[in-house]
Simulated scan of single mutants.
Amino acid sequence: MGYRARLAVAAGMTAAFVSIGIVVHDGRVLGLAIPYLVYFTWIVLSHPGKAEVEIRRKIHPARVPVGEEIEVVLTAENHGPDITSFGLEEVLPDGVTAADGETSALAPLPTGGRIEVSYTIRPSRGEYEFPPVVVKRWGRFSSAPQVERIEIPSSLLVFPRPEPLEEIVIRPRRTLVYSGTVKANVGGAGIDFFGCRHYVPGDDVRRINWRAYARSGRLVVNEYEQERIADVNVILDARARAHHCSPTADTFEAAVHAAASLATHFLAQGNRVGLLIYGDILDWTYPGFGRTQRERILDSLAAAALGDKAVFEDLRYIPTRLFPSRSQLVVVSPLAGEEDVETLGLLRTRGYQVILVTPDPLDRWREANTGKTDAASLQLAARIIRL
């Protein structure tokens, strides 16, 4: 029962017995009002009163890669009357635990005073919203606290950490007009020899092939293969049926980190990169360039989760209309069966160049069991599982 309800009950019972006692002129009835009057007085004196406490939460930093520590500071500052005892308790989001420090505090809070709770967390990949803060206040004569839950909107984003990759050669059938690192299969200015053609007035004389001229008597110039940027779209398979998820073999997390590394790699080469997460929904990050696009893709991957909707059960439902024709597709998937392999073949027949990146659950299993089992047993187990 709340403060107002208890106060109303005590006042009502006191008034009722006093009124009846006066009407019947009986002191014994008036005496029955005394306990309720005492209870009413205790309620008034024990109530902590109206709070004027400002509560702030600071998360630094609020956007981090996996593995980084995050410092959270929760502060309560009293702008009102003294509070005999004040409790401040942080409720962490699901899946987040404190690595160091305390998440609660209990102390007197005088006028102008402040209480601070500081702790560090190291959460896994994901998007987190902090629940309301639990505040408890005790009055001078109260035995039970007044509990409030105060909403302080705070969010935290933990994205996969991209890893540096060695050079990945892509040869899409279509490139963009800007200079880059992708072989365009078109003659012009470049580094690698592409072919020869007849001299045209205005050509650079340094490109004339004098040996060919000596043999044919005609001026011939060398052409080099142009290097341009390309459209690259990374497709992350987020279907639950395609992934083996267990404490020792989580292929989905490996796939998410691979997608982050691949997208970062192709963006660093100057390409236009997009991301499609194929799972519960079609989470599409429109293609773009540079650092801003990298942040968009990493933010999308931070919130990526497995899905099991029947409409997206097969890879053949990938909406190819989102991708420019004859562009480069990079599919990150363990593949769920032969029908997925057929889908990749169909994408190639439509003019796309396809790179398949497959996370290996055995590699994850071996990493988790290294040191627990001898190498020969690990190799034998891997062979049996592959069979």
Results as ranks from 00 to 15, higher is better:
Gln226Thr: 11
Ala249Ser: 12
Glu223Arg: 00
Pro145Met: 02
Ala260Val: 11
Ala212Arg: 05
Val234Gln: 10
Glu223His: 01
Asn222Gly: 06
Leu165Tyr: 07
Glu166Ser: 12
Pro153Phe: 04
Glu253Ile: 13
Ile150Leu: 12
Pro201Glu: 03
His257Glu: 15
Asp192Tyr: 03
Phe193Glu: 01
Tyr213Met: 00
Gly187Gln: 01
Asn233Val: 10
Glu151Met: 07
Thr248Val: 14
Asp204Arg: 04
Thr175Trp: 10
Trp138Pro: 00
Val232Arg: 08
Ser246Asn: 06
Leu276Gly: 10
Asp231Gly: 05
Pro164Gln: 05
Ala144Ile: 04
Thr175Met: 12
Val186Gln: 09
Ile235Gln: 05
Glu225Gly: 12
Ala230Trp: 06
His198Met: 02
Leu219Ile: 03
Gln269Asp: 15
Arg174Lys: 10
Asp280His: 15
Arg228Thr: 05
Asp237Tyr: 13
Arg211Asn: 07
Ala242Tyr: 07
Arg211Tyr: 02
Gly188Thr: 02
Arg197Lys: 10
Ala255Leu: 05
Ala258His: 13
Gln226Ser: 06
Leu236Arg: 10
Phe194Asp: 00
Arg197Ala: 08
Gly217Glu: 09
Leu262Gly: 05
Leu267Thr: 07
Glu225Tyr: 09
Leu236His: 14
Asp250Ile: 05
Gly188Ser: 07
Ala255His: 03
Gly187Trp: 00
Ala242Ile: 02
His244Asn: 11
Leu262Pro: 08
Glu148Met: 13
Ala144Ser: 11
Arg171Phe: 15
Arg272Tyr: 09
Asn222Asp: 09
Gly202Lys: 01
Ala254Arg: 15
Gly279Ser: 11
Ala259Val: 14
Val234Ile: 15
Ile152Arg: 06
Gly217Phe: 13
Arg171Leu: 14
Arg206Ser: 00
